[in-house]
Design a protein around this nucleic acid. Structure first.
Lengths: 144, 144
DNA sequence: TATTGTTATACTCTATAACTATA
DNA sequence: TATAGTTATAGAGTATAACAATA
């Protein structure tokens, strides 16, 4: 072991992320959500994907995993699925009123959490951090 | 939604960490390891905890979760557990020769991974990143 | 045949609660 | 009673493979 032990940056990244994810998941849970549900809603709202595979890829999960989450969300009444008349292989996923309401609730929690997370950072510092994280990502593989 | 959409810093953190964790897990897998096994070995080597609970806390998991991983590692012949003669409630966890070898192999993979991760960063930049991550962690809760 | 999505199944990591054994 | 650890059980998130429906 080296004389002055420096924890690998990946370990620090991992711990920080886990800590933040847990806290965020807890915050989402308080308004009836979870991380994958939030990511699904957010990505649906911001991506307008042509099909579920694109949506799954944008979230960063497999198609079958997305199906799993959509099943839960459908059971919870957040969305409906029906076939696209134009291409009946494609399933159109649409938020119900409850789904829209859930999105708003979760977004509020996410915004509040992000505000807490940014406390004490200037915009430039956040930008620098984003850039550093992007660089780490690039160093590690070509995935989105 | 705001006119210029900025992804929350937590989302970027989460994605980067997941990407890095997957790549790291893969790298560890290639030498017969996994993230929790590596964290267990690393923490055993760097912490010298008095008992398993301390060890678990240092890793950031519950005692029962540690037991679960230790079971697997014992099955794989990486370690042995025996009762402390001085306080027979305490189980002494000791690495076997195979466990020591695994530690060295995983450490090598971890060092290589960390080198890859740090590519293009100066020491000062890494230090700044560590500091920023620590600040995020502090913003989010009081856990280690 | 290729594409879209679902079902079936399973794995990993984690946790809580109940239990055993020691003190 | 309190402490150390294990066992039993479960749950969340993810994945792969096989399948059904559609093109």
């Amino acid at each position: 072991m080296p004389p002055s032990f420096r924890p690998p940056i990946g370990l620090t990244l991992h711990r920080t992320s886990r800590q933040a994810s847990r806290a965020f998941d807890e915050a989402l849970g308080e308004v009836g959500g979870s991380l994958p549900v939030w990511l699904t809603l957010l990505t649906m709202k911001t991506h307008k994907s042509a099909n579920q595979r694109e949506l799954a890829a944008a979230i960063g999960i497999q198609g079958a995993t997305l199906t799993h989450h959509l099943n839960g969300m459908e059971t919870d009444g957040l969305l409906t699925r029906r076939r696209d008349p134009g291409n009946r292989r494609v399933h159109l996923v649409e938020l119900t009123a409850a789904g829209e309401a859930a999105f708003l609730r979760l977004r509020e929690a996410a915004v509040a959490f992000d505000k807490k997370l940014r406390a004490g950072f200037s915009d430039d510092e956040i930008a620098a951090l984003e850039q550093a994280l992007a660089k780490l990502g690039a160093n590690v593989g070509e995935r989105a």
